[in-house]
Computed example of a mutant assay.
Amino acid sequence: MLPALALLIIGTFAGHAVAGPNGLLALGGYAHDLKARKSELAQLEAQRDQLRHRSALLDPRKADPDMADEMVRGRLGLVRPDEVIVPLED
């Protein structure tokens, strides 16, 4: 009886090691998830870098005059009739 119980326990652990939620069969899903997360991370890092650059242009100690002018005119709607506005953001 004891050897049969031991084999049952070992079989249960072996089954979970192969087909369990963290088993060998789940490795393919983890690799796919990792690839998707790396892609998302690259997009977020690019967005972060863009926001850092934009915030550096708005630094009060050395603000870029063109950037400040663009933001003020865009937010307040101060555009002359003879100007053409080319939106750079979606």
Rank of each mutant, 00 (worst) to 15 (best):
L44S: 11
H53E: 09
L27G: 05
A68D: 01
A46N: 03
V18S: 01
G74K: 09
L2E: 08
A26V: 00
M1S: 10
R73F: 03
F13A: 07
L27T: 09
D66G: 13
R48S: 01
A26R: 05
L76G: 07
P65L: 05
Q50G: 09
Y30K: 10
R48N: 02
A6W: 05
K35Y: 10
V72R: 15
V18M: 02
K62G: 10
D33C: 03
R52W: 06
E40R: 08
L44G: 03
L44K: 11
A56H: 13
V79H: 13
S55I: 10
A17I: 01
P60Y: 02
A42P: 04
G29N: 08
D69H: 10
A26E: 05
P21Y: 05
L25W: 01
G11E: 00
V79K: 12
V86T: 11
H32F: 09
S39C: 06
Q43P: 08
L25N: 03
A68H: 00
E40Q: 09
R54V: 12
D33E: 07
A36E: 05
M1P: 08
E40W: 06
V86W: 05
H16G: 14
G28E: 04
D59L: 15
E89W: 15
G15D: 01
A46Y: 02
P3I: 06
L78A: 12
E45Y: 03
R54P: 01
I85V: 15
E45P: 00
A63W: 03
L58E: 00
L8Y: 04
D69V: 08
A46R: 05
E83C: 12
N22E: 06
G11C: 05
V79M: 09
M1Y: 07
E70V: 01
M1Q: 12
Q47A: 14
A14I: 04
M67E: 05
A31V: 14
H53D: 10
E83T: 15
S39E: 07
L76Y: 08
V84F: 11
M1N: 04
P21C: 00
L24C: 02
P81A: 15
S55Q: 07
N22V: 04
